[in-house]
Design a protein around this nucleic acid. Structure first.
Length: 474
DNA sequence: ACTATATGCTACC
DNA sequence: TGGTAGCCCTATAG
């Protein structure tokens, strides 16, 4: 038998929090044990063991009717293509490009595990990552030394939730094991304290913010949820769950709709306007295990839940009573692992989640790689797996940036950035730039004169190409 | 190579 | 309903 462990149990006296905060640049640029190329971005070994089920469908032949992006673009430009089919075609194209995603850059700036990951809402290459010691890094991965580092308190400082202030993107909301939900600027100055427990026995576990409704929601480790306005005034504070609240999420399109997930093995949907107590939920979704996360889809119509064992669920707002989709997926809980959370892609119907291979999960194979798995959000089929042979750890958190072309992951102490093969991209961008200077709009160009690869890029990521923004429906 | 360490969760009394 | 023994079994530093 394994030796008896005593970590993480019972009452322990924590070191008194050192409240002094300072700003510093982390000393370990890439980290001594960074997987291969901390901050570097050198040539990448191709990942040979990726399974790419998507390649069967999409762009096998450029002129194949009707999946060809050129066909779809023509149809769309002439106002003929049904929106759904065009969107589907773009998704197929994106899936195809996922096959070329490689580990682009890594960083290991912390002295403890990463616990939290959030992209900047408008700057496409900047992300914030929080750690178990309360440290936070703000990192522009395109500019190697452009970082902010907010020092945490060390033991017991764990960042549990993070959200850029939608009213001022130079500020971040944090919930923390240190016992507060707080708004700070990038230098670490406290702008406002929204909640404080004043005890080591209870702490905040998650935070979300609505810009339209001007409210802040935060959950704690004993089941309470607090609703506050942007000034920090408490609207209500109620015990909505029997155990720790693991996640709170406001619906992006319906700002009075709240989802809460808990280790009490339930997810609940609430109407913020009429919450009175734990029995006032609109809907109640019991799960087989504790639940790590409940995320609304970008259009607000669906809810994605991740449990602590082997289930990912998708619920539809039109029918909360039973899940629309139940995806079996190994991501079991372990005490010293950051809980695995599945997320939506911001623009396509895709779900991203880290795999923790489990000998008891059907289909387990020895030495099964710890991949990042992507699922189709409607069929539930796995469409792609990302893996880099130099990154052997379990990847707990995964999030695509708001533009949808870059994936950030966290693996233990490390931050990983996945991008389409860099050389290919640069080449394409060079091509596009040349095209733009020659032709300010794509319309006068005969479609046959543009390579399919270039068209695909314009269609899927028009934001990259300035003047083409008007082309798509997004 | 080996060990200590790190605010999880469940079942049970 | 509260306290805790037993179990889940990673990844890092020394």
């Amino acid at each position: 038998m394994a030796p008896k462990r005593q970590a993480g149990r019972g009452k322990r006296s924590f070191p008194p929090p050192d409240k002094s905060r300072c700003v510093q640049v982390p000393g370990r640029g890439g980290g001594p044990q960074a997987p291969g190329r901390g901050g570097g971005g050198g040539p990448q070994a191709p990942s040979s063991d990726r399974r790419d089920d998507a390649s069967g469908g999409g762009l096998s032949g450029p002129r194949e009717y009707p999946q060809s992006i050129i066909w779809a673009l023509c149809q769309h430009k002439q106002g003929r293509a049904p929106q759904a089919s065009f969107q589907q075609c773009l998704q197929q194209t994106f899936l195809h490009s996922l096959g070329s995603y490689r580990l682009f850059r890594t960083a290991s700036p912390f002295d403890r595990r990463t616990t939290c990951l959030e992209w900047h809402p408008t700057h496409p290459s900047t992300l914030a990552v929080g750690s178990k010691g309360g440290d936070v890094i703000l990192w522009d991965y395109e500019v190697l030394d452009k970082i902010c580092f907010i020092k945490g308190i060390g033991a017991g400082g764990c960042i549990t939730g993070m959200k850029f202030n939608p009213l001022n993107t130079n500020q971040l909301f944090f919930s923390s094991v240190e016992g507060s939900t707080i708004l700070k600027d990038f230098v670490g100055n406290t702008i406002r304290v929204f909640a404080r427990t004043n005890t080591w026995d209870n702490w905040y576990t998650s935070v979300d913010v609505s810009a339209t409704n001007r409210v802040v929601v935060t959950g704690d480790s004993v089941g309470n949820v607090i609703l506050l306005n942007m000034d920090g005034k408490e609207v209500w504070n109620l015990r909505l769950h029997k155990k720790k609240v693991s996640h709170v999420a406001l619906n992006p399109h319906c700002d009075w709709l709240l989802a809460t997930a808990s280790v009490d093995q339930t997810v609940k949907i609430w109407d913020l306007r009429q919450v009175r107590g734990k029995s006032c939920f609109l809907h109640w979704m019991p799960h087989e295990h504790a639940v790590n996360a409940a995320c609304f889809s970008p259009d607000g119509a669906r809810l994605l839940t991740t449990d602590q064992h082997s289930e990912i669920r998708v619920y539809s707002a039109s029918h909360w009573a039973s899940p629309q989709l139940l995806i079996p997926h190994p991501h079991r809980h372990f005490q010293h692992l950051t809980p695995i959370k599945a997320t939506w892609h911001p623009r396509f119907d895709l779900i991203t989640v880290g795999r923790y291979p489990d000998p008891n999960f059907p289909g387990f194979t020895p030495y099964e790689p710890r991949t990042v798995d992507l699922f189709d959000g409607t069929s539930g089929k796995m469409v792609c797996q990302l893996h880099d042979p130099d990154c052997s750890g379990i990847i707990s958190l995964n999030k695509f940036n708001p533009m949808g072309d870059t994936l950030a992951s966290t693996m233990g102490y490390n931050i990983l950035i996945w991008n389409p093969e860099e050389a290919v991209r640069r080449k394409q961008e060079g091509l596009i730039k040349a095209m733009i200077s020659e032709h300010p709009r794509v319309s006068p160009l005969p479609l046959s004169s543009i390579s399919e690869k270039v068209l695909m890029d314009i269609a899927v990521f028009p934001q990259r190409f300035g003047s083409f923004t008007q082309l798509g429906p997004f």
